[in-house]
Simulated assay, not measured.
Amino acid sequence: MTTPGWQTISTTFMKNDEPYGGGDCRIQGNEVISLKLADPVITFKPVEQRKNPEYAEPTEAWMSNVYEVLNRQTISFFRGTVDGGLKRHFQQPGQDAAWWYSKDWGAQYISTSWMDYKIPQPKNGLSPEITRLWTSRDGGNNWSQLKWPEEQNIGQLLFLDPGRGYAVGWGPRVWRTADGGRSWKEIRVPELARDREQPRQRFGGVDLGADGVLRVAYYVDQMGEVRQSSVVDRLRWDSEAFEREVVLPGQAVVTIQSEQRSPGVYSIYALSRLGLPRDWNDRTDNGHRTGAISQWGNYAKPEVRQLHTFDARFTLDGLSVGQRGILLVYATDATGEGAPRDFTLASKDYGKSWIETDDGITQGVYFDPATNTQYGLYAYTLKKRMW
């Protein structure tokens, strides 16, 4: 098994948008959409206007204040072409965002989250956050705000089509809409997925299958005979309650992904870190764990198979599931000298065998599961390779 070579498709990708960054981009042929989180533009005084010519001095005082900079971060949506440039069609204040887009890019949803970093932090450490929800039905040209309780965070947006989908946020909490986001119904999550001492807890992984089944993964210390395991529960579109699907003993799930097939039999994959989750109260625990990938089917009472355990030097960051047995795992190796290196760990046979590719230091990665095409961004240079 060999690694396909990178092909350069642009050396000026989003070069004219300041501050520079490609954002979370999606590509179809020459067409591009991108959701970008950006700091405000910082400028500096000419040398003759500085108090000390040897040190750079920002043009305005707020540019030296990290809290002011955080408060001025923005979320932007761009659309355009690889060779012709991208145009901004949406911009809102925010330090975090989630989005969903239809296959034809005709409909989009974006949630923006903004926190005031200048106010004193509350005793519980949970500064208030304002979340807003937006939608476009004309390819991102025009946007409207949907009703949403601003105090409820949205970390993920997952939809079957422009009318039916889910919002998942802190708690963790799950909401469902069947009318394009005009109204939402909260779905009760599994009790053991929540921790009263951590009101902003998230699921370990979330996935929406092509058949409308929502899956959530969470870690439990003890649940009857189940101890120190990750649990994956599923919610059918026509159901109001989650049900147990599988248990992964001795693992903390990082992410779950399903094959994006038409409704029918398909596989679900879980990327996990072996052992206990990181203990943030233990200063000696750096969070590094050996990673593994597991698989099971979407039928009743599936059997979980652990397909592969990865080299201990890798920290697993993400997973993509493609067509015809393609699996890509994104990992970081920080064991060598210098900056951490980005790796793609790839399988072409449903996880039976793997190769590792050192991709250097990338500034963004996107995988198109419909075409098995991987994109990588290096400064202004956009590359692709087909698996």
Results as ranks from 00 to 15, higher is better:
Thr255Arg: 11
Gly80Glu: 07
Val66Thr: 10
Thr373Ser: 10
Glu245Asp: 15
Ile293Arg: 01
Asn65His: 12
Ala56Gly: 07
Pro128Cys: 03
Gly181Glu: 09
Pro190Tyr: 06
Asp39Lys: 08
Asp116Gln: 04
Leu345Ser: 03
Thr309Arg: 13
Ser102Ile: 01
Glu337Asn: 09
Ser76Gln: 08
Lys301Ser: 11
Arg234Thr: 02
Trp105Thr: 02
Tyr330Met: 10
Ala107Asp: 14
Thr177Trp: 06
Asp279Lys: 09
Asn71Val: 01
Val321Ile: 15
Ser320Ala: 15
Glu129Phe: 01
Thr335Ser: 14
Ala56Trp: 14
Thr2Glu: 14
Pro93Val: 02
Asp282Val: 04
Gln374Ile: 08
Ser239Leu: 01
Thr344Tyr: 10
Gln152Met: 08
Gln92Asp: 01
Gly205Tyr: 07
Pro172Tyr: 13
Tyr219Thr: 01
Leu377Asp: 07
Gln28Phe: 07
Val365Gln: 11
Ser230Asn: 07
Gly169Thr: 05
Leu328Glu: 14
Leu35Asn: 06
Arg305Ile: 10
Gly139Thr: 12
Trp148Glu: 09
Gly336Tyr: 08
Val206Gln: 07
Gln108His: 13
Ile256Ser: 02
Gln91Ser: 14
Ala292Val: 01
Gly22Ser: 01
Asn372Glu: 11
Ala210Pro: 05
Glu54Asn: 13
Gln49Ala: 13
Trp100Gly: 03
Trp148Thr: 03
Asp282Gly: 04
Ser183Gln: 11
Pro40Leu: 08
Gly23Trp: 06
Glu240Asp: 15
Gly171Val: 02
Trp114Thr: 01
Gln323Ile: 06
Met386Glu: 15
Gly250Glu: 08
Gly264Trp: 10
Arg305Glu: 15
Leu319Glu: 05
Lys87Gln: 14
